[in-house]
Every structure is written in structure tokens, then in C-alpha cells.
Design a protein around this nucleic acid. Structure first.
Lengths: 237, 237
DNA sequence: GCAAAAAGTGTCTTTATGCCACTATAAATG
DNA sequence: CATTTATAGTGGCATAAAGACACTTTTTGC
């Protein structure tokens, strides 16, 4: 049998197979807290529980897993998040009552915006402060997935400026530092933080300022490619 | 409809679905080179090409994706590798001619051993020096997967001792340093390397020595939990 | 004007790596 | 058996980046 014959007769539905979904953990910084976008499930299984935005691959519509993730997030938020990174796959016999299932997961960051302007769909989307997640019963193994995503982001906060993508396009160094402190779980030296940021040369001073309470703070934007920069040393340790 | 009714009528084969495989990138250090275990494919598709050890999930046999990876690697090497870590999932419409497919991947490390003692199977397993991979045409997108796995390991070599799991149970500091230099791609200061290793306190001096050429070198073994340790600063930068 | 509070800086200390020369140990050589 | 040689392993100062913390600056609100 040559390859074309083999492919002609091949049908993977003949074998028992897990089914595949894509789930995304989307974070945004808002009101001094890190928020995670969750969806109230209206359908079985896990009906009425909060879950990560996710869904099945649409084989004819999606070119890749990442395209699936982008489609799902755009559906819920109206935009394509500026930061999207692959997390690991979770798969076992019990995580979904429908059977052996695999979910391939992504971490995404974006600026906070009132959620779901385009999501006039069946399901309700809402930003949840990650501090409040512990008390909530989430669908499937999504609590564990969010924990892993947070841990990943926490690590990145130690040696990169990746968290900046969870801020608006223009932000102050104070806001950026607060976000890092939130992730790392302890206060950082203002001087150390600013020195690193300056040396890395990843931000543009927009010239504008923002008055929060007292002295106005300079507003910065992220340079292109900032996501690729890693410091050689961790902060806050 | 309640949940049990929903589950009773649910059949995901009704919807077009990608199929899922698991592939593992297994590295071992041998003869001053990093080697990667590859399998010569005997079946369609990609017949006669070299590929990563991998395969389908066996839903009745495997409790999880990780269990699938362990089963596949044990099949090929006879052992359960001491280091196994999840890499990302790769999925798109074109990577496998059979259709929209997803592979969930793992990076594994183990001590080199003559391969496939238990693998009296259809396929031929062989260690390939990673330097020689560039000239080979690998099946599917496995070349890209190996590149990503190597990049991950290279990063880990900068801030951890993870590569130690690609060495035999007892090894010298010289061997460990050579492996790190191979991964990082440049020579390291002997003093810096040894200082880090000592301060981290991740190794046991076995009291034994190994004579390679001249002065015998102390043999060390890895302490439990060494995989979890991260240095606060990268080496070699 | 003056207090308050957050923005932003100067500078010394601390920590870990870079660098490089030095000593130690065993095999090989003649 | 002394000497060479090659690798194992150490001492010690230089350098780079973070930690600590006091200080100045800029604005608001009284």
C-alpha cells in the first residue's frame, strides 16, 4: 500500500480518541488587582459553573490551535490580545465527564476593558479578581490551570517585563511596579525596579503624564519586541 | 435535560475533531554530545522518516497524557526517565497528512543507555547526536519540536541544574559543566560553575572518584528535589 | 504658604558572577 | 624515580546588578 492509498482509507474515528478543546487564561490589571476573564457556563456539563473561555477546534475555520485561541478570545473581548503564549496541555480520563479529554491551554494578557462588548452570546463573561478565585468552584480542572498560568506569569515577572501587556497601552512606572509586586507577592525597591526598566530600554516615554493623586507620573508605552527580553538576574530575591 | 441525560446522549464523534497524539523529546548526554532518541517510522504516513517517539493515547490504558508519555518512553527505553516535563501542544490542519491533528509534547532526560533493549518492535530506535539533526529530514514538524525542546533545555541550563538528569546517576562536575557548555554554546568559567553548584547544595559527594585521564574527579549524585531549584541569576551572560 | 503624598534620584552596601592565576593529584614517560 | 602533562580543584580580586534608604521634586488641598 502506498501513502495515498493509506490516507484514502484512514479514518481516525475508527479508534477511540480523546476529544480536544482549547482554553485560555486571560489576565488584565484593573483597580490594583489582577483579573481573570471567566465565563458562566450555560450548558452541560458543569452547567452554571464559572469556566475559562474555551471551546472546540473548528477544523474548517481554524488554521492552528493558536488560531482557535485567538478566535475564542476575540469572541469574548472583541480584540486580539497583545500577548498570547502557549501553556501545557492537560489531558486525562476524568477531568471532563464526557470522557477522555485534552485541553491545550494559553496564557493571554490584555488591557482591561469592560468585558464582552461583542459577546451577546449565550454565556456571560466577567472579570474576576484572582484573589477571589479560591472561594469559587470552577468548572473542570480550570482552577488548577489558572494556578499554573499564574505561576508562569509570576516567574516571568521575576526576569522580564511581560506583565506590562496586562496594562493599558499607556501606563506609569508605578502601575507597572504595582503589578509586578502583586505577582511576586512582595514589595520591590522602587529604585531597583526603575533601574532595570531603564537599562533594558523596552519602554518609550510618551511625553504625556497622568495624575493619579499628587505629582503627575510619566506615561510610557511598550516598544515592539519587549516580550522577548529577559533580564539575566531576578528581581526581588 | 439534566446532566446525566446530556451525558448519555453526548457523542463527540458527531462533530469533526482533530486527533491527538503524544510525542516526547528524550535527551541523553553521551560521548561529549547531546543525543536525542528517534524512531524510524515503518508505517504511513511519513514512512521511513525519523520521528520522535510518540503515539496515540490509549484511553483505556492511560490515565493521563503524562501516563501516555511515560508508557511510550518506557516502551522504547525500558525505563521511566527521571525527568519529564510538559512542553506545549502543536496543532494545525497541515502538520499531519491524515488531517487536523494535535500533538502534546514532553521533554524528557535520562542517562544514556544502549537503546531499545526491550524494543523488539516494528520500529527501530536510535540515539542521534543533536548536531547532526540539521542534515536530516524528520517526519511531521518534529524538527521544530526538537528545536523548541532544545531551546527550553538551553534556558534551563542558564538558571538551573536540570541538565544533570541527562547524565548517569554518578557523574563528575567536569561532565556536568561540559553538558551545560554544550547547551549554552560557550565555555563557562570553572570557578563560577562550581561555586553555583556548591551554594545550591543540590548534589551529594558519593566519596567515589572516576579517573578519566589524569587526576581522578569526585563523583556526585543528584539530591531529591534538585529539579525544583532555580538560581536567581543566569550563568554565562 | 505649608503639609501631604506620590514621583523620581543619589549613593553606598551587598551579592553573585567573571576572570585568572595558582595548587593538587595521578598517569605516562624516559 | 624524577619529570612532564593534563585534568581537578581553589584563592582572591574585579565587576555588574540588585538592595537599602535617604533625599529632592512636583503637584494637590487646605
Amino acid at each position: 500500500m502506498d501513502e495515498s492509498e493509506y490516507l484514502a482509507q484512514y479514518d481516525h474515528h475508527k479508534y477511540p480518541q480523546p476529544f480536544v478543546t482549547v482554553d485560555a487564561v486571560l489576565f488584565a490589571f484593573h483597580e490594583k488587582a489582577l483579573n481573570c476573564l471567566l465565563i458562566k457556563r450555560t450548558n452541560h456539563p458543569e452547567q452554571n459553573k464559572w469556566a475559562l473561555p474555551g471551546g472546540f477546534v473548528h477544523p474548517t475555520e481554524d488554521a492552528s490551535l493558536e488560531a482557535t485561541a485567538v478566535r475564542i478570545l476575540k469572541d469574548k473581548t472583541g480584540i486580539r490580545p497583545p500577548y498570547l503564549e502557549s501553556l501545557k496541555a492537560y489531558g486525562n480520563a476524568t477531568r471532563d465527564k464526557r470522557g477522555w479529554s485534552v485541553t491545550t491551554t494559553y496564557v493571554a494578557l490584555m488591557a482591561y476593558r469592560e468585558c464582552a462588548p461583542t459577546s451577546n452570546r449565550v454565556s456571560e463573561a466577567q472579570w474576576i479578581n484572582v484573589e477571589e478565585l479560591d472561594g469559587m468552584e470552577l468548572a473542570f480542572d480550570h482552577a488548577a490551570i489558572i494556578r499554573d498560568a499564574l505561576e508562569r506569569l509570576r516567574q516571568k515577572a521575576l526576569y522580564s517585563l511581560i506583565p506590562v501587556y496586562a496594562l493599558p497601552a499607556k501606563f506609569t512606572l508605578g502601575e507597572l511596579q504595582h503589578l509586578h509586586e502583586l505577582l511576586i507577592g512582595k514589595p520591590l525597591q522602587k529604585k531597583s525596579f526603575r533601574r532595570r526598566v531603564e537599562q533594558a530600554d523596552l519602554l518609550n516615554d510618551t511625553g504625556e503624564t497622568k495624575i493619579v493623586g499628587k505629582r503627575p507620573a510619566a506615561l510610557y508605552s511598550v516598544k515592539k519586541g519587549a516580550a522577548d527580553y529577559n533580564f539575566v538576574r531576578n528581581i526581588g530575591m
